[in-house]
């Protein structure tokens, strides 16, 4: 509040009325989205091939690892976009597209030479590769940050190179 408003006796705005909007890109929100995706996958586990189910759950594990890395340092925008895309769009769309098929045609090869089940496996594997690359990049950033911190501490507490 400005000093003029205080002199005039204006009421201070109630901070409770200005509740911050929920940050959809916060680690907590991302983890909640991953948990919701896990429940989505589990609820449809009976209609998925066991290998696809295992790989989809491994993908959610990798997503959790990416989100957990925010405990060390904030996620960069690319990691957030990657997690958001897989959790909110790519994996649910893949699974819904597969589950919408008649079970009798899921193992019949299509014109491209692959059956829908094979295509499902390939799509999940592609997503896993993408998220794994994001996790590796995040961990490398953490390692770089640790090395930078080490150089800072060495410079701060050791003798300077300029000392005689």
């Amino acid at each position: 509040m400005s000093w003029l408003a205080r002199l005039r006796g204006d009421d201070e705005p109630d901070e409770r009325d200005q509740a911050p909007e929920p940050d959809e890109d916060s680690p907590e929100a991302l983890q909640a989205a991953v948990d919701e995706l896990v429940r989505f996958v589990n609820a449809r586990a009976g209609a998925l091939p066991p290998a696809a189910l295992a790989n989809a759950r491994a993908l959610t594990d990798t997503l959790t690892e990416v989100v957990d890395s925010a405990q060390v340092r904030p996620l960069d925008v690319y990691a957030v976009i990657s997690v958001r895309g897989v959790v909110g769009d790519y994996l649910p769309t893949t699974l819904k597209g597969y589950l919408a098929l008649d079970p009798e045609v899921r193992d019949v090869p299509r014109a491209g030479g692959h059956s829908p089940t094979e295509s499902l496996m390939m799509q999940i594997d592609s997503l896993q590769t993408s998220v794994q690359a994001t996790l590796v990049a995040t961990r490398e950033q953490d390692a770089d940050a640790l090395m930078t911190q080490g150089r800072f501490l060495q410079t701060k507490f050791n003798r300077s190179d300029l000392d005689l």
């Binding site: 066991p50 290998a51 696809a52 491994a58 059956s115 094979e118 496996m121 390939m122 896993q128 590769t129």
Partner: peptide, 11 residues
Amino acid sequence: SAAQGDPVLGY
């Protein structure tokens, strides 16, 4: 390989 559509673990 799961990358080629086989029903195996992808990891």
